[in-house]
Write a protein that binds this DNA or RNA. Structure first.
Lengths: 142, 142
DNA sequence: TCTTGAACCTCTAGTCGCTAGAGATTGTAT
DNA sequence: ATACAATCTCTAGCGACTAGAGGTTCAAGA
């Protein structure tokens, strides 16, 4: 096991610049280098980067991943803090789904109401221009 | 109607720096100024900024809003392009909901499986460390 | 009229998690 | 030996703001 950054990238499916970025922000430890200063990774880098990738796939932010990694390194501690992190994330996902579901129904209504005539009669534009004609309230989405 | 930027901000519920930002990126036209170079807004600014805010609330990005604004200014044209923009956005919202729904179920399973013991036995950490134990595949989320 | 002080001004930099590019160096296969 | 892909560092950019510094202007009260 003596992987170049490109090998690691292919194996874990994380792009090369992203690996360097993770090193820069201290998420992945700096590996040893060749004489010519190229990075060479071992098995522990593979598993740590996998962990990071899976956690990112699950939508955890870097701070949460930092905490999860540090918890994973303490096998005797209670896993409750990890639980809390996951729960916190789950709740934010649920809030997001709720927002987006509202949003979806608004957008559907807009499309249904559209007469497909000229802009002058277009409900879509009207709703945007005069929000009081809108059916529901909704929070910020972005 | 001769509103300061603060008046406009309160009336439309868009923050002052955001208003200046919209001017900078050309979304809101630059208003006339007082002798002392302070901005003074009229009714057309209020309605244009309202339009922008409603569209942002609906999750449209700035480029889409630019197009919607320019369509709104051409009342004789067909509203089909506006339709297309809304449809495109609806589809992306639907994709996002689908992703997040998958994600939610993964996170719920993780929490269910957790034995609330030490980290060593924690399914949450195990799933992250060894992704093959994961129940489902899912796309990128962030 | 003068004085406060809140509101305004411009400009730069930071947020998050990367991604892209320039320009130079290194590793590897032929 | 040579070619060329891969690597290196560094800086800047993405989107849609947000925060802060340091200075100026406006409007109201004394």
């Amino acid at each position: 096991m003596d992987l170049s950054i490109g090998d690691l990238s292919r194996r874990v499916a994380v792009k090369v610049p992203t690996i360097r970025y993770y090193e820069q922000i201290g998420l992945l430890p700096a590996p040893p280098r060749t004489e010519g200063r190229q990075r060479r990774y071992g098995a522990e880098h593979v598993s740590r980067l996998s962990f990071i990738r899976h956690a990112r796939d699950l939508g955890f932010d870097v701070e949460a991943i930092r905490e999860l990694l540090s918890l994973a390194a303490q096998p005797d501690q209670s896993c409750e803090p990890a639980d809390q992190i996951v729960l916190r994330h789950l709740e934010s996902v649920e809030r997001r789904i709720a927002q987006l579901t509202l949003l979806r129904s608004e957008l559907r209504h807009m499309l249904e109401d559209c007469r497909h005539g000229p802009v002058r009669e277009c409900r879509i534009i009207q709703v945007l221009a005069d929000h009081d004609q809108c059916r529901h309230e909704h929070g910020k989405v972005s």
